[in-house]
């Protein structure tokens, strides 16, 4: 299937500071796409350029194969990192406003907003002022406002920030349910466990540059595919002497062995059995944090 969103060579400078540099990636239709990176890497600037809140110095953004303009961007549901509500407005009025400003007829907007409020357990709050709501409730109202016009693409910038675990769980469930309905979600975050749980594709940005883009399982394979986690009656020095092993890392009582590209796992296991008893031999699955740190390190050593 064609990608729903394509970024082609996006660049943004602020004076001498390069906020985003030659950024390109595709977001496959129907995926949950994680836009990752440390604080200040350029995630929010990238998203703002997708939404045309700021305009890129170079490059372009395609939605369903066509350049995003001021009209087409309304097909996207956008929850900015800096989000808020008019405090004095009544909750339902506010949602109707957010709906109509995105082109939903007022009657329709009211119906949909009421249904969502019920679903999130806020039905009784519809006629209260926004300022009477707790912060968690306000965040739900913001989220409803984002999806009221039934966008096929959602862009959520740090959606979990400030959510308690229960609300975070609700948001995750909602995102998974929306993916079931075929909605594509771009999720920017620096909290990695959530990405592990949700995303099938990622783009890792560091210092304005993309350093890792692709399917999460393939990336895991790349970073962990040749690494084996072993435990048994052998020591580090013996392992380092094995011809099949490129590098050895300690992990508590176990070892992580990077296999040489020309060696087969079967040969490594045979060699280990020669050394002594083997109580564990498993392919190592790196978590995202591992990948993240290694990718950033590699990127910096390339740069240096």
């Amino acid at each position: 299937m064609d990608p729903i969103l394509q970024l082609e060579g996006l660049r943004k400078n602020y004076g001498d500071h390069v906020a985003v540099d030659r950024l390109s990636f595709d977001v496959p239709t129907g995926s949950i796409f994680g836009l990752l990176g440390p604080n200040g890497a350029g995630k929010t600037t990238t998203i703002r350029m997708i939404m045309r809140v700021i305009l890129p110095d170079a490059g372009r953004v395609l939605l369903n194969g066509e350049p995003v303009d001021d009209d087409r961007r309304r097909l996207i549901g956008y929850l900015p990192e800096e989000r808020g509500l008019y405090r004095k407005m009544k909750v339902l009025d506010h949602l109707v406003f957010l709906g109509t400003v995105r082109g939903v007829p007022p009657g329709e907007a009211k119906q949909r907003a009421s249904a969502w409020l019920e679903k999130f357990g806020l039905g009784d709050w519809a006629t209260h002022k926004v300022e009477d709501l707790s912060k968690g409730m306000q965040q739900k109202v913001q989220l409803i406002g984002t999806i009221l016009h039934r966008p096929r693409l959602l862009i959520l910038d740090e959606p979990f920030s400030g959510l308690d675990p229960i609300n975070a769980r609700e948001l995750k469930d909602l995102m998974l349910a929306m993916r079931e309905e075929g909605v594509t979600i771009v999720l920017s975050t620096h909290v990695l466990p959530q990405v592990d749980e949700l995303c099938d594709h990622i783009c890792l940005i560091n210092q304005a540059r993309p350093i890792l883009v692709g399917r999460l399982d393939e990336i895991r394979e790349r970073f962990g595919g040749r690494t084996w986690e072993v435990e048994g009656g052998f020591g580090r020095e013996e392992l380092e002497r094995l011809p099949q092993v490129e590098a050895v890392h300690s992990l508590r009582s176990r070892y992580l062995l990077d296999l040489r590209p020309d060696a087969a796992p079967r040969e490594l296991l045979a060699a280990l059995l020669e050394l002594g008893e083997v109580t564990m031999f498993a392919r190592f699955v790196p978590d995202l944090e591992n990948i993240f740190i290694r990718a950033v390190e590699e990127d910096q050593s390339h740069a240096a």
């Binding site: 703002r48 939404m51 045309r52 809140v53 961007r73 956008y78 929850l79 900015p80 800096e82 989000r83 808020g84 509500l85 008019y86 957010l98 400003v101 913001q142 406002g145 984002t146």
Partner: peptide
Amino acid sequence: RIVEVIIA
């Protein structure tokens, strides 16, 4: 901070 939602 509602402004960004609106100008998007």
